[in-house]
Design a protein around this nucleic acid. Structure first.
Lengths: 344, 344
DNA sequence: ACGCTCGATGCAATCGATTACATCCTGCCC
DNA sequence: GGGCAGGATGTAATCGATTGCATCGAGCGT
């Protein structure tokens, strides 16, 4: 009563295992009548080819691993969907892993590919373990999405974080804001560094020198947004607008601002980054930078398929972002609200 | 320059492949000196055992698939984390799949297990394909989480949806609400049916007959929440409170209520279900039913490990939920707000 | 010193499907 | 009718690691 193998089917159909394999893989290579008998036997036994064996022989798994920075950020879900769609279409499966931006975990997933659990890796993580950089030639097929590692030559699908961040700041400037705070991502990382650079360049273009006290480091999480606002309040620096490097941080910031009795956008305008699903259901609906998540996923997978097919490497792709103006930003008040600590 | 195999290592270390395998698998079976030489050779070649070959032989993959109803619902992320933690600890990997509650996709994932891509399947989907019910004896190891299929005897980790929904309704009743609307999940499904039953039983216990016009079917999504409110407004039925079968729907509903000029909780109190991450950052913070997501995931994986280890089946588990009261519910007004359509 | 035990290691079968090559058979042409 | 082409099918090698069994040799007891 064990699992049926190709031999079980062969016996039942009265043919050799080779014929069974051919009947299933290259139908035109066997006679219709034989094929019918084989298919009948397959149905009767409930046979499903053991993919371990098949892959061992064919040296492919038709599976790719999608490794994300932090799986609890819903932002990545939409990307997964894009990857999955392109993969499904090409007969690939997708495995999602949570890197938690931890070198060990990342290396673990790279080893999974080396161990032939999967054919390739789509990376959306903030770090690239040093240990791996030294053995670039041994690396499995890798596509980078969202993030960029300029020192590595790997196919990449990304967005222009500098320009996007700058656009967010320009929007606030147009509304008359001058004291604009910024909650960054984890700072040694490119993604965070670029958005910060965009913020600075936006201010600079308007002739404003960035006040370092208005820049607080976060880590893209909800809680980081809350803490950042608390930190800004503690230092007592006043501001009328806030640009957060992720929607989650924007949400956290708004929730904390409200807790301090400040209204958004009445007292403080807030801009996020990502345009996650809940952004427009939030109260107020969040003004943010929209990223074409689904397409980023799809393109990344397309590149992976190309890579695995030994096609000539496609050029790196920079996807378009756009500013979505909703209710969390408004023109600055004539007399900016004082810092909440000094309020009442 | 191809990938190193166990033979490459064996040659370099001057031993047989068997010894290499043993040095790596059961260190106590080889002499320390031999082992040292083998490990040296492994390091030198960068050898990583091919898991296809290993698993083919050992008939296990140490991978489980976590199949969820809809991957874009962030609710599942926390569950994934629980599963992943328990899995990692036991040396298992976790693959997450998106079922989209589609029979074909579900069957596809079941076949992945049959094809030995994974050892077992943790299901968190609303449907159980009819086709599979007829071949129960052939099914791979399956654990059901969150959902229940009473007609199937499979290890299950769930919550008491009826009691939890009832508790939500009781909270609203205590605040004086009498006209309580309910947005259900997709209705043929157990999860949705149970929460609806809890809603009805809560009302009944207070001597109130449910007004069918106040019950609108949804599908757990943000958009379903918005549409449901629109639908309620169209029919012109007035209500002072709303119980949504998911937080996402609650968010959608609140956003739509606001768009109609109603305040929450001023005009309408809203209770959700799930307590997703953003629930307390929302404005107003959402009153909802908290589910121990992380533990549900962990327990489900624990059951799977037991199942794979051929341990005697553990009893089904019902996890505790609790009502979390936040800012989206308030005592009913003396004179309930009229239906927004008839307003002004 | 002989024989026996037991630990370390090697040999080769094995997991299950794929596929190069061999074999057989049918049918066609001269 | 003989020979040969070509299609259908079978045989067996192969992918790479694991593991039962065989072998070898060191150590020990008498």
């Amino acid at each position: 009563m064990s699992v049926p193998t190709i031999a079980t089917v062969a016996e039942l159909a009265g043919v050799s295992t080779a014929t069974v394999s051919r009947a299933l893989q290259r139908p035109d290579k066997v006679q219709p009548e034989t094929r019918r008998r084989v298919l009948e036997a397959v149905a009767a036994t409930g046979f499903v080819p053991n993919s371990q064996a098949r892959n061992l022989r064919s040296r492919a798994t038709r599976t790719v691993i999608l490794l994300v920075r932090d799986i609890s950020n819903p932002f990545y879900l939409e990307i997964y969907k894009g990857v999955e769609e392109a993969a499904m279409r090409a007969g690939y499966k997708v495995l999602m892993g949570d890197a938690r931006d931890d070198d060990e975990r990342i290396t673990h997933y790279v080893d999974m590919v080396r161990a032939r659990h999967a054919d390739g890796l789509i990376l959306m993580v903030g770090r690239f373990p040093e240990a791996l950089k030294t053995e670039l030639s041994r690396l499995p097929p890798i596509v980078i999405a969202l993030e960029t590692f300029p020192e590595l030559v790997l196919p990449t699908v990304s967005i222009d974080n500098i320009a996007a961040a700058r656009q967010a700041v320009e929007h606030l400037l147009e509304l008359g804001h001058r004291r604009i705070a910024h909650i960054t991502g984890p700072l040694p990382e490119r993604l965070a560094v670029d958005r910060l650079a965009g913020y600075r360049s936006g201010l600079a273009a308007a002739g404003i020198t960035a006040d370092e006290a208005l820049i607080v480091e976060g880590d893209f999480s909800l809680d980081a947004g809350r803490k950042a606002v608390r930190r800004l309040n503690e230092t007592g620096t006043s501001f009328t607008a806030l640009f957060a490097a992720s929607d989650q941080m924007a949400f956290g910031a708004i929730s904390e601002l409200r807790a301090c009795g400040l209204s958004v956008p009445g007292d403080v305008s807030v801009v996020g980054f990502d345009d996650i699903v809940l952004a427009d259901a939030f109260v107020p609906p969040l003004t943010t930078i929209h990223q074409p998540r689904f397409d980023i996923g799809r393109q990344a997978m397309a590149r992976m398929i190309g890579l695995l097919g030994k096609e000539p490497a496609a050029a790196n792709l920079v996807m378009e972002t756009r500013l979505v103006v909703r209710g969390s930003t408004a023109p600055v008040r004539q007399h900016p609200h004082p810092n909440p600590r000094t309020k009442e």
